[in-house]
């Protein structure tokens, strides 16, 4: 369930109050906003700019520069598939292709039911256990298409209720 815009603004104001006096606070503010709301709502850009005495362009520029920050809500689950060299050396690209086909979405997209977002990642630092993926912040190594199917099927289990 998405937070109503007014609650989001209150949340952003609270975060600004917490961080604004720290040195170089913009990334910290954006991390906190994304942690609280799930993404950086476009309407909060002006609020953040005002709160930190920056221009909207400054804030927008930072949000869009970093791959980690999202401007739209993600799926309820996030699957990151490593696409870097070490994983490529042991079938990472076939695994990535399998994930795309299985989910019916491309990288940077979410399934139409909003359950899962598929994201590329360029190294999870788990290269001795390639291919590596991360599902909702949990690492999984030596991944195979069959094991990935198992992980995704577990998300469909009844326990996975609306977040």
């Amino acid at each position: 369930m998405q937070t109503p815009a007014v609650d989001q603004s209150q949340e952003v104001s609270r975060i600004l109050a917490q961080f604004k006096d720290r040195p170089g606070p913009l990334l910290e503010v954006l991390h906190a906003v994304q942690a609280a709301i799930g993404f950086i709502p476009p309407h909060s850009i002006g609020l953040i700019a005002e709160g930190l005495n920056l221009s909207r362009a400054d804030v927008h520029g930072v949000v869009t520069f970093y791959h980690h920050f999202r401007s739209a809500p993600p799926g309820r689950h996030v699957l990151q598939v490593c696409r870097a060299e070490s994983c490529q050396a042991v079938g990472g690209e076939a695994l990535a292709e399998h994930a795309r086909t299985r989910l019916g979405v491309d990288f940077h997209e979410s399934t139409p039911d909003g359950r899962l977002s598929l994201e590329p990642v360029y190294c999870l630092g788990n290269c001795a256990c390639s291919p590596a993926v991360m599902l909702d912040g949990r690492p999984y190594g030596r991944m195979t298409p069959a094991r990935l199917d198992g992980l995704l099927a577990a998300l469909n289990a009844p326990a996975d209720t609306e977040a």
Binding site: P23, G24, L26, L27, L30, V62, Y66, H68, F69
Partner: peptide
Amino acid sequence: AGAYVCGEETSMLESLEGRR
């Protein structure tokens, strides 16, 4: 926040200061 180039020391400093 997921930018490889921030491993370059001056980019890292920019990022620590809250910029691109």
